[in-house]
Simulated scan of single mutants.
Amino acid sequence: MSVFDLSSRTVLVTGATSGIGYETARQLAERGATVLLHGRTIEEALAAADALVATSGLDAARLIGLGADFARLEEVEALARRVVADHPHLDVLVNNAATAAPERHTLTADGNELAFQVNFLAHYLLTCLLEPAITSGVGGRVVNVSSSLHRTASIQWSDPQRARRYSRLAAYAQSQLALTVFAADPRVAAVSVHPGVCETGLLPLYGVEGGPAAEGATHVVRLCDPAVEIVNGAYYDRDQRVDPAPVAAEDRTVKRLSKLADELVAHHA
């Protein structure tokens, strides 16, 4: 991959304290970007920023830690308001934060199935609230870090919280399908990418060995480059553009999902 200069760019990476998110933040900062590192707590985010400065010699002024627990939509709302206030021109939002669905059916304080909220709904709300700040000029975009497991999924429209039939793999896959469908929402220029199966906390869901997180991050970072032209709703498997699951490209599904998500985040949007 060619090394490109991002010194004029500001990028928010969610879930930047470990795994692919951490390596994405590192690679973006190495190319000169100002990186907003999101962590579940501000302490975790600041520790990640400090670690990047200590291990990579990066400019501490270009690494800004932000905290928000995505299992609490009020914290997502507060995060968005702070970003809009402090960084009114945001070039790229990388929706990367993800949790493996727990063994047992678990609801957040907002009443949503945990993986559906953390992996999709929180990013949906964050993206909608950041829409005024995301640069409408060349290169302004959203990059959703999805998963090839979206191909195994279906969105349970009558029971999106999976209260009746729960399996952690199906719940995780549903959240990734929703994130992939959301990339086709016409409100913002967005793509989704499966970065490959990497050594992260999600690896047990795949049941196979994973590659280095840094390798997966390169595929995310490439899509942050304004020189890489994107088509809204495009899906990438690593560095190759491929068709997502057929349902992810259906206008009807995009509209249905945005209607469902709007209802679920209504108090915070």
Rank of each mutant, 00 (worst) to 15 (best):
F116Y: 15
D237H: 12
C128V: 15
A33I: 00
H268K: 00
T200P: 11
H194E: 11
L130M: 05
A47H: 11
A61F: 00
E131Y: 00
D69M: 05
I64K: 15
T34Q: 15
D110M: 07
A48I: 02
T17S: 13
P195Q: 12
L179H: 06
G137H: 01
L126S: 01
G15H: 06
D225K: 09
T99G: 03
Y235A: 06
Q176C: 13
A51M: 14
R62K: 15
A214Y: 00
A78F: 11
A249R: 14
R168C: 04
K255Q: 15
A173S: 14
L79H: 08
L125K: 11
H87Y: 14
V220Q: 09
R82E: 14
A269M: 11
G207N: 02
T218D: 07
D110Y: 14
V193H: 04
T14H: 06
L202E: 07
R9V: 01
Y124I: 08
R72G: 00
Q161D: 15
V11C: 09
A61L: 06
H123R: 10
V13S: 01
D243Q: 13
T41Y: 07
A153Q: 02
A133F: 05
P195T: 05
E103Q: 12
G210Q: 13
V143Y: 05
D110F: 14
V220C: 01
G32I: 00
A16W: 11
C128N: 15
L125R: 12
V228K: 09
D262R: 14
L169T: 13
L58G: 03
T34G: 04
A122W: 07
G207L: 00
D225R: 11
Y166C: 02
L126G: 08
Y22A: 08
A33Q: 03
E103S: 12
V118E: 02
F4C: 02
L121N: 08
E75W: 00
A214N: 03
L58W: 13
A122E: 06
L202Q: 04
A190H: 09
Y236E: 08
R241V: 14
E43R: 14
R222Y: 04
I64D: 06
A190W: 04
V247E: 15
P226Y: 00
I134H: 04
A80F: 01
V138I: 06
A45F: 05
R238V: 13
R141A: 00
E199N: 08
R62M: 10
G233S: 10
I64Y: 05
E103Y: 10
N95R: 07
T10C: 13
L73I: 06
L66P: 02
A184F: 05
R40N: 00
L28T: 02
R40H: 10
Q117E: 09
S147D: 09
L107Q: 12
A171V: 04
L125V: 13
Y22V: 05
L125I: 08
